[in-house]
Design a protein around this nucleic acid. Structure first.
Length: 694
RNA sequence: GGGCGCGUAGCUCAAAUGGAUAGAGCACCGGAUUUCUAAUCCGGUGGUUGCAGGUUCGAUUCCUGCCGCGCCUACCA
């Protein structure tokens, strides 16, 4: 509603100025919010118009105010020095629309969106860093769906990489376990915890003797051959850990539609298809000298092509195709899985700007697989996975997994219009390389619909690390935060944190509501714990490193999820006390408050406080669109908090059920009902529900 | 060395494409309820926005340089 009105106002102002100054080229109308609600609901800075119109800002503002004429939903305009046009909304009009829950139809872009998030290596338990990823990703999915978009959720599983290999090494070489023993362990409740510890031990084992790294190489090689015993064990372990991850995320109400695995990208030869296209287009080039001799390389994203001209040694090597192939190239080609007749070029890229995609031994690196995978995402590869059902959620939603041979009937995945990859900031260079590959293939427009949803890591404060029993170097103690490391087993496990939050919330609920059954109290405590955790991960902007601290994360007061949940509970309790159903009241009664009553009770300066509550309630979809446009869910968290804060102030100042004026009481109840509805919606987009009591 | 990012109150963080008096939470101090339960509310203390220039009617925001910190920069993923 708010968003709609803002657009309408901007359009009217611009049209007015066009009529008044037909000759001038006008800048965009910028909409802001005045610092205080008394000043108005929209603020339009007029300064940018002064120069093109050769008129003082105040004069322009005055002209608009006096002559623009009536606009539906706008009550009045005021000119404010040094050059603002402040606009007040017709409060009764807006309140009536909001009470009736009118939502003007928005233009929803066509096309499916693919959001990839979580993507934890399936070799150990999920930790708080993974939680941030999954919560950001899941919230972004909810934002898109709230805005009416169709979304597929994918969780990429790197089940053939070094990390899985390392745990396989742990089981087979350190613990010397048989396949049957591993299978038995994998059936244990928190198998991922077992792997967490083992993974850290493997890292130590490598550090003890560099010779041990050869075992890793052998294991990695073994995994790629699907028929080998090593591959079977790796599959066994990674699948069991993957199930644990789905369970962990399921506790937070985070679900996936499809789990593409690296093993299928390998076995279905996605890379071969991509390789042909990449070499044909000259994106991928061959390097025949220097440290990357014998590799297929790409230009590192962000490096400048001009730089190459400064390197005389490589100038000749970039002539275009194989016609000027050096003599020794044929030898090198034997080691490379090249089809005859493939057209290729020599790289001619300076060494430091090269990104190795195919190693000289012919194996493909991570970025190469990622390029192929992203071509598939956009339907550009010409190949598809096979699919089978993997996991059924309690709500009966099925999560599918990639397979070499799958089920006949399956949903259509991939081939989407837009993608968002929730991946931490450390991988932005790799992400950019994938985008550049798409551009190089001529898919510029497609590349524009590729968004790296980049966020910073979760680290531990030195105090937190000490609490966990880690001994810190003097250097680490002086840092403001210390990076989590799965390799070292250094971090806070997701399930542990959630358990702790539940225990902590439970003791609060126990003391407040002893009359409830234990199951009821546990259910409430769980909702509170999830609310606290999800809010905590969303309140920080993406680019801020979260220095994790138990005291803050376990807090249920102040700017927290439970604070917002509590506001909903309070709103609900008013209706409960009055023996009314808040949802029914909101749907069927709130809209009956007459325009006259809205006008009366929202008029004047002393109604500003209540109006502010209505205004904030009107902003939910506006905020949602801001979050999507900026890929920043933190704005929504802030909005929910502000709504809750305004409500708590209102709740404190205005006794509602004891209000003697029956019409005013209805108005106040409508206020509560609308705020409650919008707060519940905002929280739902963050994956937070409000318990019945707190 | 190069690339990306960060530096705001004692602490943790906000501040939408540059806008009106830089805001919250925590901590600390002082208050509020026999009411729709206080996981709440009200008030107070707390700032040279790292430093120096520049652009602009206007800079926490944009540009340049410097200082400090983090991440990336592997034929790892």
């Amino acid at each position: 509603m708010y968003r709609h009105l803002e657009h309408r106002l901007a359009r009217h102002v611009l049209e007015f100025l066009r009529r008044r100054y037909p000759a001038a080229t006008l800048p965009n109308v910028v909409m802001e919010q005045p610092p205080r609600v008394e000043l108005g609901d929209f603020a339009i800075p007029i300064f940018p118009f002064a120069k093109p119109l050769r008129t003082a800002p105040l004069k322009i503002a005055e002209a608009i105010r006096a002559d623009i004429g009536p606009i539906e939903g706008i009550a009045e305009m005021q000119v404010a020095p040094p050059g603002y046009l402040n606009v007040k909304i017709d409060r009764a009009w807006m309140a009536a629309a909001l009470a009736a829950d009118q939502r003007p139809p928005a233009d929803i872009p066509a096309g499916k969106i693919l959001v990839e998030h979580t993507s934890i290596n399936p070799n150990k338990a999920a930790h708080i860093g993974h939680l941030r990823n999954a919560i950001l990703g899941d919230t972004f999915v909810r934002l898109l769906r709230y805005a009416g978009r169709e979304v597929d959720i994918q969780n990429y599983i790197d089940n053939t990489g070094v990390q899985v290999a390392d745990v396989v090494v742990g089981f087979t070489h350190i613990e010397k376990k048989s396949r049957a023993e591993i299978e038995a362990l994998a059936g244990q409740p928190r198998f991922d915890y077992y792997c967490w510890d083992l993974y850290a031990r493997v890292s130590q084992w490598y550090a003890q003797d560099k010779q041990n790294l050869q075992v890793r190489a052998q294991t990695l090689h073994g995994i790629e051959d699907a028929a080998s015993e090593t591959a079977v064990i790796a599959e066994l372990i990674s699948t069991a850990v993957l199930r644990r991850h789905l369970e962990t995320m399921g506790r937070l109400d985070i679900e996936y539609d499809f789990l593409p695995r690296e093993s299928e990208i390998l076995h279905l030869h996605f890379w071969d298809a991509a390789f042909t296209k990449l070499t044909d287009s000259g994106v991928l080039t061959f390097e025949n000298e220097g440290k990357n001799k014998g590799c297929w390389v790409m230009r590192r994203a962000g490096t400048d092509r001009v730089a190459r001209a400064l390197l005389p040694a490589t100038a000749d090597a970039n002539k275009t195709n194989g016609s000027d192939t050096p003599d020794d190239l044929d030898d090198l080609l034997i080691a490379i899985p090249l089809k005859p007749g493939v057209d290729f070029r020599l790289s001619g890229i300076s060494e430091e700007d090269q990104k190795v995609i195919v190693r000289s031994n012919g194996t493909v690196g991570y970025v190469g697989k990622d390029i192929a995978y992203h071509m598939w995402k956009f339907g550009l590869l010409g190949r598809d996975f096979a699919y089978r059902k993997f996991y059924r959620y309690p709500n009966l939603h099925d999560c599918w997994i990639s397979a070499t041979e799958g089920e006949k009937d399956h949903p259509h995945f991939g081939d989407v219009a837009e993608i968002y990859n929730v991946i931490d900031a450390r991988q932005s260079e790799a992400q950019n390389t994938v985008v550049e590959a798409l551009r190089g293939l001529g898919h510029n427009e497609t590349a524009d619909h590729y968004t790296h949803f980049s966020y910073e890591m979760v680290a531990l404060t030195p105090r937190c690390a000490a609490e966990l029993g880690y001994t810190l170097s003097e250097e680490d103690k002086a840092r403001s935060y210390i990076e989590v490391s799965g390799r070292k087993g250094f971090g806070v496990k997701a399930d542990d944190l959630l358990d702790q939050l539940i225990v902590s919330a439970k003791s609060e609920v126990d003391s407040r509501h002893p009359q409830l059954t234990d199951a009821e109290r546990l259910s409430i405590a769980t909702q509170i714990a999830i609310g606290a955790l999800r809010y905590f991960m969303l309140k920080f902007t993406k680019q801020s490193v979260i220095a994790f601290d138990f005291k803050e994360a376990l807090s249920f007061e102040g700017e927290t999820g439970p604070y917002a949940q509590y506001a909903v509970v309070r709103a609900t309790s008013i209706f409960k006390k009055a023996a009314m159903d808040p949802d029914i009241f909101c749907r069927e009664v709130a809209g009956d408050v007459s325009a006259g009553d809205f006008a009366r009770y929202l008029a004047g300066d002393n109604a500003d406080e209540i109006w502010e509550l209505w205004l904030a309630s009107a902003k939910t979809s506006y905020i949602v669109s801001q979050c999507i446009a900026t890929t920043e869910p933190a704005y929504l968290a802030r909005h929910a908090f502000q709504l809750a804060q305004l409500f708590n102030t209102f709740y404190h100042r205005h006794p509602i059920l004891s209000e003697p004026d029956e019409k005013r009481k209805q108005f106040l109840l409508a206020t509560v009902a609308v705020v409650r509805r919008e707060l519940i919606r905002a929280l739902a987009v963050m994956g937070i529900t409000a318990p019945p009591v707190m």
